[in-house]
């Protein structure tokens, strides 16, 4: 697999990152190098390896279903760039 300008544009759109058209070429080159590096994995024989579903050898960590006090609302919205009526305020969203 290799990266082209179209792929970079698609990833940028999905990630909500703004990239100018004249930057696409450069990013495609960088991405290509990364993909090339990762491609080496394909040469390893994984015939006997079990799929790794998680990096940690730990499982079943739970909490009991006991509610506790939530955070103070004022504290929670203190850092929000914009707030109104106890709500976070975001740019108008058109229902998708």
């Amino acid at each position: 697999m290799s990266a082209d300008k179209k792929l970079i544009r698609r990833i940028a759109d999905l990630s909500n990152i703004h990239i100018d058209d004249d930057e696409l070429e450069g990013f495609a080159g960088d991405m290509d190098a990364i993909i090339g590096y990762m491609e080496q994995i394909k040469n390893i024989d994984t015939g006997d390896a079990k799929p790794m579903e998680h990096v940690l050898p730990v499982h079943n960590v739970f909490r009991d279903d006991i509610p506790e006090d939530s955070f103070e609302r004022e504290k929670l919205i203190e850092n929000a760039p914009s707030a109104e009526d106890g709500c976070f305020k975001v740019p108008a969203v058109v229902e998708q």
Binding site: S82, D85, K89
Partner: peptide, 15 residues
């Protein structure tokens, strides 16, 4: 939940 503000200046969010 998004609460759409009547004035259209933004959307309010209740988490």
């Amino acid at each position: 939940k998004l609460i759409h503000d009547a004035y259209g200046s933004g959307s309010l969010v209740d988490y």
